[in-house]
Each structure stands twice: as C-alpha cells, then as structure tokens.
C-alpha cells in the first residue's frame, strides 16, 4: 500500500504555476527523499499534503483513503520555516502543540516527559523558549512533530540549522522511526544524506515529478557502461581491448598502480574483466555508478 499517492496535482498562484500535474507515490514504510532545486514546488506540495493549501486540481490519498480532516493526527510535520512562541515556557508550548494534534493532556504530558528525559531537556521544562539555544529549540520542535506517533512523517529540510552532533541525533532518530515501520518523507539539499538514508526518492522539477523510484533502481537505470580497472604496473601497458570497448583514460594513478577508464556496454562487466584479467595484474575493478547528485544535476540541466 502507498502511504501517500498524489495524482495530477496542480497549484497555481497569482503569478506562477507552482505544481503542474505532479504525480507521486510514497510506499508505506519507505524513507522517502523529496529532492529538487529551489522553487521546484516541494514546499507547496508539502503544504498541500498537510492541508495548509488546497490543490487546484488532482487527488491525494493518505493510506488509501482521500485526504481528510484527520490528516493532522496522522501526519507529523516539521516545516522548514519553524519556530516557537518565544515568551512561552518550553513545557507548556510542547503541551499546547501536542494537544492541538489531538493528544489528551495526560498522554501529552507523559510522552513529553519521556522524550525530554531521553534528550536531556528535563531541566528546561519551565524555562522560556527564548532561553533555549537554536539547537535545543529545534530538538523541542522535532519532539512535538513525532510525539503523537503519526503514521506519516514529513520533514522539510530537517537538518538545516542543526549542528553536526544534533544533525546526527536527528538522523539516528529518523532511522529508528524507519525501522519501526513509520513512513518518512523528507526534503533536503544534502545529497550525502540522501545516499545514506533514503530507500526511495522523487525529484521534483518545475512542478513535476521528473525522476522517481528506489535509490538502487534509479542508479541501475542510469548505468552508463563505464568501468575502471586498476592494475599493477610501472607504466601503462599496451593492451588488447575486446570488441566494442574503448579506453577513455589510461594513466599512472600512484606509484605502481595504473588507472584505466573504459567505455563499454552496460552488460559488459564480466566480458571486459575476463578479457583484461589475463593481460594485467588486476588491482581493482569497478563499475562507475552515478551518484544521486550526478542524477540530480543531469536531470535538472537536461529538463
């Protein structure tokens, strides 16, 4: 089942057309990366999912049923532009947000205290929000996002504004929620965190979903048939290449290691390796796999 299914979503603002027939499917239990350049329509899409905005056209399903008023209870949302009431006390503020999400007062209190304990925030319960450091305020926001244990979590740029240690904390927490079976959609500009975390991605560009699938499938689809063979030798050797294979690069990499870049067919790995293995002392053989960043740039610049 899909946690989220968007079909033909259009959203027009007064001066521009932000979403132009966007389709997207987020499988249940996936850790879904929502990518795209600035202004691609990611935040508009996220706001529509959260029912902050209404789509002009198209349909949106949450776990198989149309998006309804219970979305607030079923979705946890950490916006990119996030903040808290500065003059309110931390605990009260968290209680207020939790209760707005439909938790009872007793439930909210109990869950908040266990989270605060886990993240060592207990002593801040009665302090004012304005006394919190930026990182601590972000932690409180994260807690209030996940506290009501929603089935779908949406994080818009979750790592922005966090220092590396807290970013790691959030990353670990996301992985833990993912292991628990929660569906997580997050948008980010950090490609390394996409490679590290995501099971699925969608690339939104100019209001459309231009690239989507599991990380591995996408990489497989965009194989270029390029390989690198590193072998032991003092100088590049005169080699006999199999038919349909050409050398793109042939040079000394380090002392005693030669780098040979090869262009071949996508399915040619074993043919290339067996043809060359007899001619040299192989040190390392690899297929050049496109990174998500490469895919991103390639798709966006070609579109």
């Amino acid at each position: 089942m899909n946690a989220l299914r968007a079909k033909g979503i259009h959203k027009r603002y007064a001066t521009h057309h932000a979403l132009r027939g966007l389709d997207m499917e987020v499988p249940q239990g996936s850790l879904f990366g929502l990518l795209g350049p600035n202004g691609a329509g990611k935040t508009t899409l996220i706001r529509i999912i959260n029912r902050i905005l209404e789509a002009d056209e198209g349909s949106l399903e949450l776990f198989g049923s149309p998006l309804g008023p219970d979305a607030a209870q079923r979705i946890g949302y950490l916006p990119e532009e996030r903040g808290l009431y500065k003059s309110m006390k931390v605990g009260e503020q968290a209680m207020y947000l939790a209760r707005l999400r439909g938790l009872s007062s007793a439930d909210a209190k109990q869950r908040l205290h266990s989270w605060f304990e886990r993240w060592e925030l207990q002593s801040w319960w009665d302090k004012k929000v304005s006394d919190l450091s930026k990182g601590m305020a972000q932690k409180v926001q994260f807690i209030t996002t996940v506290l009501h244990e929603p089935e779908l979590l949406i994080f818009d740029e979750p790592f922005s504004g966090f220092d590396p240690i807290n970013a790691q904390l959030i990353r670990d927490e996301m992985l833990r929620l993912h292991r628990e079976g929660r569906t997580i959609v997050f948008s980010t500009h950090r490609m390394e965190s996409v490679e590290e975390l995501c099971s699925h991605i969608a690339l939104v560009h100019q209001g459309r979903n231009v690239l989507h699938g599991t990380l591995q499938d996408l990489k497989d689809q965009h194989r270029s048939g390029q390989f690198i063979l590193r072998y032991r030798s003092e100088q590049p050797l005169e080699l006999h290449l199999p038919e349909g294979v050409s050398a793109s690069e042939h040079r000394i990499e380090t002392d005693g290691i030669i780098h040979l870049g090869l262009r071949a067919g996508v399915q040619d790995a074993s043919r290339v390796l067996s043809a060359l293995a007899s001619q040299v002392q192989p040190y390392q053989f690899e297929e050049v796999v496109p990174s998500i960043e490469d895919l991103f740039i390639k798709t966006v610049t070609q579109a």
Partner: peptide
C-alpha cells in the same frame, strides 16, 4: 505578527 515572524503559524495551521 508574533505567530507569523516566529514561523510557528506553519505548524499551527496544520492542526487548526
């Protein structure tokens, strides 16, 4: 204005 400048409004309007 406070809700808007502190950006808390974005979270609020998902529930209200």
């Amino acid at each position: 204005i406070e809700e808007k400048t502190s950006r808390i409004v974005e979270v609020l309007v998902t529930s209200v």
